[in-house]
């Protein structure tokens, strides 16, 4: 959170001009859509009569009611405490999304039927591919960062070529290159190892830069103190610099993990039966792929939320040594 001022500003959503603007904007937007044929129009029947014949009056009335409800909602939320505000807004946005998904008329029994397989095959594959890739990418990142900061010409050249190459190529391309290209050199890699390799190399390159900047953010004095006690390079790195760089590294790395979780879906092109592959495949025969795609999205989202929670936990852990 930003550093709050000690003088409280007037709550924005209670300022008359803001409330008026908000009302006007929402009203205008909903006036632009004809909602008379929707279930909301049906709800308004007592006021506007037969919805399909209400014409402009119906549209006007519906937009007015929606704008009024919206503004009322926002103004009321404005009175709540911060935590309650966050909870309510999350809840409402979630409801809106559910309402949006409901418009697809999804077959819930089909989802229930396929969910076990989506999880036992898809989620498991996605998770282990991502997890292994994350570990390898982190190792590569440490090596790469050290190489990029070193005065050794070879190490620097290799590391900077590596980061430039793998950050510059689309991940899909890398998957193809590794899966189709490595056999040319005599290495026949399976689909899963090829996918893991591609993900590790690509994310290793991004994380190299994160680790490098993290390492560089540590004060010179730490190196000097460590050196003055006779610590060697690797000891200094492992015990002094990296542990301090971690709090700097973790937030962007968490982002990388989350985005890798979803990018792992790219290995489906080489036939790995992970979550995305199944999402596109399972509903195919019966043309119920919307069900599968939305289920997979929900699963991805939940996995991401788990990662976010883990990240914030770790961040809190490292904040320990900063508390007075």
């Amino acid at each position: 959170m930003l550093y709050p001022d000690t003088v409280e500003a007037e709550i924005l959503v209670h300022k008359p001009w803001f409330v008026a603007t908000m009302f006007g904007a929402v009203f205008a937007i909903f006036l632009a859509f004809n909602l008379t044929s929707t279930s909301f129009g049906e709800l308004m029947r007592p006021v506007i009569g037969e919805p399909s014949q209400s014409g402009l009056y119906g549209r006007f009335a519906i937009a007015f009611v929606i704008a009024l409800l919206f503004v009322l909602n926002v103004v009321l939320i404005g009175f709540a405490s911060l935590r309650v505000q966050i909870a309510i807004v999350w809840f409402e946005l979630l409801l809106l999304f559910l309402a949006f998904f409901a418009t697809f008329h999804l077959s819930l029994p089909f989802i229930w039927e396929k969910l076990p397989f989506l999880i036992s095959q898809g989620v498991v594959t996605t998770l282990y591919v991502s997890a292994i890739s994350i570990v390898i990418a982190s190792l590569i990142a440490i090596l790469g960062a050290v190489a990029k900061l070193s005065t050794n010409g070879f190490a620097y050249a290799i590391a900077s070529f590596y980061t430039s190459f793998f950050r510059g190529l689309p991940l899909l391309m890398q998957v193809y290159l590794i899966y189709l290209g490595l056999p040319q050199l005599g290495f026949v890699v399976g689909a899963v190892p090829a996918g893991i390799l591609a993900l590790s190399l690509c994310y290793g390159a991004y994380m190299t830069e994160i680790f490098r900047s993290g390492i560089q953010s540590i004060d010179r004095g730490q190196w000097e103190a460590s050196r003055s006690m006779g610590f060697g390079f690797s000891l200094t790195m492992r015990r002094i610099i990296l542990p301090q760089a971690l709090p700097v590294i973790i937030p962007p790395t968490g982002n990388q993990f989350i985005s890798m979780l979803k990018d792992s879906s790219l290995v489906s092109v080489i036939g790995v039966w992970e979550l995305m592959f199944l999402a596109r495949t399972l509903g195919q025969k019966t043309f119920q792929h919307m069900e599968m795609l939305i289920s997979a999205s929900a699963i991805y989202w939940m996995l991401s939320i788990c990662l976010e929670l883990i990240q914030s936990r770790i961040e809190r852990h490292y904040a320990r040594s900063k508390v007075r």
Binding site: Y179, P183, V188, G190, A191, S268, V269, I270, G271, F277
Partner: peptide
């Protein structure tokens, strides 16, 4: 059965996969 993408199959060079 294995299920690689169509363009991967048609790219040839299956190398025994």
């Amino acid at each position: 059965f294995v299920t690689p993408g169509w363009d991967i199959i048609t790219a040839g060079n299956w190398v025994g996969r």
